[in-house]
Amino acid sequence: MKNQDFDIIKSSGERVKFSLHKLRNSLKRSGADDPAIEHILDTVRDELYQGISTKEIYNRAFALLKKRKSVFASKYKLKKAIYELGPTGFPFERFVGAVLQYSGYNTVVGQIVKGKCVPHEVDVVARKNSEYLVVECKFHGEEGRKCNVKVPLYIHSRYQDIITLNRDQNNGRMIPDEGWVVTNTRFTKDAIQFGECAGLYLLSWDHPKENGLKDRIDRLGLYPITVSTLLINREKQFLLSRDIVLCKQLLDDVFYLDHLGVSEQRKQKILNEIKMLCNI
């Protein structure tokens, strides 16, 4: 049976044809070399069966990458690592704020901003020079769920309420230049269509094309702490509770690993992995 004849089950329950091309591209983003990628592709291809889940394919590829090099596995698990920022949406808001901060913005997470009708708690307020952004984050803890049109509709109404107050007060400096909607999953076609029509900037896992969340993270080396394959879940949750949401932040606050009782030898392995992730 040819590879393209295998049906696989996505996390949403949708049945699609297996794509060797998509799997190869996801492995390339991990930084693995061509011989390693071809070995993993051959192994996974030999283990395919009708109705295999994308989760099973991911787990197999992840295990094979981890045997090669932990940093490859860390990059490969990026999407899953962002889900691990849950179960609440607050760590994701801090993550988005940190990504914008490392992109040159001054950011505040969870700021109350007055609107004409009611005040609004904005997930992230970001400023760079004269640019002023209000950013709303929509975190989904379940794989396969998408942001439908209701999300940008709701956020657009809040954004307009903030703009209207400051226009009425002739306070140009306080009028946001752009309203953003950021999600860790994907937007439906209707959501993207409404966002573009209404003038909202939509940022998801793979939107805009070649400048989605995954592209920005890879380009800037701004990986969430949850990508680490060497830290255990308890340690990750401790770091998140201390506002360490990016791997880069841990390099500046290494003492947290001492606080967790991490041995010197293991600490060096963790830090080496993070430096490779962040291209330092």
Rank of each mutant, 00 (worst) to 15 (best):
120 H>S: 08
248 K>P: 01
154 Y>E: 14
178 E>V: 08
235 E>Q: 14
213 L>R: 01
106 N>Q: 14
218 D>Y: 13
68 R>N: 12
55 K>T: 05
119 P>Q: 11
163 I>K: 07
202 L>E: 04
99 V>G: 03
260 L>A: 02
238 F>E: 05
206 D>A: 00
198 A>N: 12
138 K>H: 06
4 Q>P: 14
205 W>K: 03
256 Y>P: 03
268 Q>S: 09
136 E>Y: 06
30 S>F: 05
191 A>R: 01
163 I>Q: 10
67 K>M: 10
96 V>M: 04
90 F>K: 11
277 L>P: 00
106 N>M: 13
27 L>H: 08
34 D>I: 13
148 N>P: 14
134 V>E: 04
261 G>Y: 03
160 Q>D: 09
164 T>R: 11
103 S>P: 08
119 P>F: 08
169 Q>V: 07
70 S>Q: 13
21 H>D: 12
30 S>T: 04
203 L>E: 01
65 L>A: 06
106 N>V: 12
150 K>R: 13
255 F>P: 10
18 F>C: 00
106 N>S: 13
230 L>F: 03
85 L>S: 08
165 L>A: 03
168 D>F: 06
222 L>V: 07
252 D>Q: 13
184 N>C: 02
15 R>M: 14
74 S>E: 14
228 S>T: 04
74 S>K: 07
67 K>V: 06
247 C>I: 06
2 K>P: 15
180 W>G: 00
16 V>E: 15
41 L>D: 15
93 E>M: 04
34 D>Q: 14
217 I>T: 02
143 E>H: 08
31 G>F: 06
210 E>M: 15
179 G>I: 00
52 I>V: 12
60 R>E: 07
262 V>L: 01
12 S>I: 08
265 Q>C: 07
124 V>N: 02
271 L>P: 15
192 I>L: 11
103 S>E: 15
78 L>F: 12
174 M>R: 09
279 N>M: 15
28 K>I: 14
244 I>P: 00
59 N>A: 05
41 L>H: 11
233 N>S: 12
8 I>N: 02
215 D>P: 00
159 Y>H: 03
5 D>C: 15
83 Y>D: 04
277 L>Q: 05
170 N>M: 10
82 I>G: 00
272 N>K: 12
272 N>A: 10
262 V>K: 01
